[in-house]
Simulated scan of single mutants.
Amino acid sequence: MQLYNKLSAKERAALIDEAGKDRLTISFYQYYKIENPQIFRDHLFLNWDKLDVLGRIYVSYEGINAQLSVPAENFLDFKEHLDSISFLNGVRLNIAVEQDNKSFLKLKVKVRNKIVADGLNDDTFDVTDKGIHLSAKEFNEMLANPNTVCVDMRNHYESEIGHFEGAVTPDVDTFRDSLDIIEEDLKEHKEDKNLLMYCTGGIRCEKASAYYKHKGFKNVFQLEGGIIEYTRQVKAEGVENKFIGKNFVFDHRRAERISEDVVSNCHQCGKACDTHVNCANEACHLLFIQCDDCAEKMENTCSTDCQEIIHLSYEEQKELRKGKHNSNKIFKKGRSEVLKYKK
């Protein structure tokens, strides 16, 4: 019985090209008390692997957080399987604004302590006492209210390429970093201001809204379905778009363009640009913004040091990586002294 992905990303990409069929990029989440996450995880893998589902799915005792790609022709079967699971019956599915058949190249279903790393002790507050959910139209109305403080619950590298007009965009590396910072900055307005939050698909706001209500905020609101659902409603219902730039996504696409505005700059030359790349030096892999001219000049690397390294032999590069653990703890996304124009 196969319970893990056995194909490399390269092999999977070749199969997708060979099949020549459209795929749908989808995301969803649901907070729910799962008694045995490992059994549930295996159940999902066995059923979704048969449907050629690919993606990154986290399962924990508190629920599920899924970002995946499914063949369009298998979508109804996939939806039928979701609906067969009691707490996922009718769950809102966020369909990507821009589709890419290779948004995911492996099926990874992992058991985690939490479906979002928030650093919170859920036993200390009622996680079900959430903020009021708003549609795109309602969100715009609340955004226009002078008594509203709109806060972006995403990280700095997400908000730098796109955000809502007038939103507060905390300069943080992780979701957990933002929680205390926002509370401290708004501590004088817990009762007299509307706290309006948004994130990519809604999952971070779901937990944050309950946390802030626990902390004494009286008027807490969140964008239902996040930026993804907001964009869908804008297009379907003719609602005015208040989001400027790109929406950062955590797959091979890296972003979806929501408006034509370019609100960020190349981290190497300062030119207007909103294209995130990873440094070509595998030992670095830094996520940063790079324009086409700098990409050509620097050969897709973030620094001259990394540019020199990519010209070494594979064995020499492998030797340099020995003993180094490549993670966000060392290589902060979009943060490095070599990025001259990082705001």
Rank of each mutant, 00 (worst) to 15 (best):
M1W: 09
M1A: 11
Y4A: 11
E11M: 08
E11D: 11
A14G: 08
G20K: 08
K21C: 07
I26Y: 01
I26P: 00
F28R: 00
Y29Q: 06
Y29A: 02
Q30I: 01
Q30F: 00
Q30S: 09
K33I: 08
R41L: 04
H43N: 10
D49S: 15
K50H: 09
V53P: 00
L54R: 10
G55M: 07
V59A: 03
S60I: 01
Y61I: 07
N65I: 00
N65T: 00
N65M: 02
L68W: 01
V70G: 00
F75S: 01
F78S: 01
H81D: 13
D83V: 03
S86V: 08
G90V: 01
N94M: 13
F104I: 04
L107N: 02
L107K: 03
V109I: 15
V111R: 01
V111L: 02
N113R: 15
F125H: 05
F125I: 09
V127W: 09
T128F: 06
D129G: 07
K130D: 04
G131T: 03
A136D: 05
M142Y: 13
L143R: 13
P146T: 04
T148L: 11
T148A: 07
V149D: 10
V151W: 07
D152N: 11
S159R: 04
I161W: 02
G162Q: 03
H163S: 15
E165D: 14
G166L: 09
V168S: 11
P170C: 09
D171L: 15
V172D: 05
D173W: 04
R176N: 14
R176F: 12
L179T: 05
L179S: 07
D185T: 11
L186V: 05
K187V: 11
L195Y: 03
G201R: 00
A208G: 07
A210I: 04
Y212C: 07
K213P: 05
H214Y: 14
F217P: 04
F217T: 02
Q222F: 03
K235I: 06
G238D: 08
K242A: 12
K242V: 05
F243M: 11
D251H: 03
D251I: 02
H252P: 01
R254F: 13
A255F: 11
R257M: 10
I258K: 05
C266F: 10
C266S: 09
D274A: 13
C279S: 06
N281S: 14
N281M: 06
E282C: 05
L286I: 14
L287T: 13
D292K: 15
M298W: 14
E299F: 09
N300S: 12
C302P: 06
T304F: 12
D305V: 14
Q307E: 12
I310E: 10
H311D: 09
S313G: 05
E315H: 09
E316I: 08
E316F: 11
Q317E: 09
Q317L: 06
K318D: 13
K329Q: 14
K329Y: 10
I330F: 10
K332F: 13
G334Y: 03
V338A: 09
L339W: 06
K340Y: 08
K343V: 10
K343A: 13
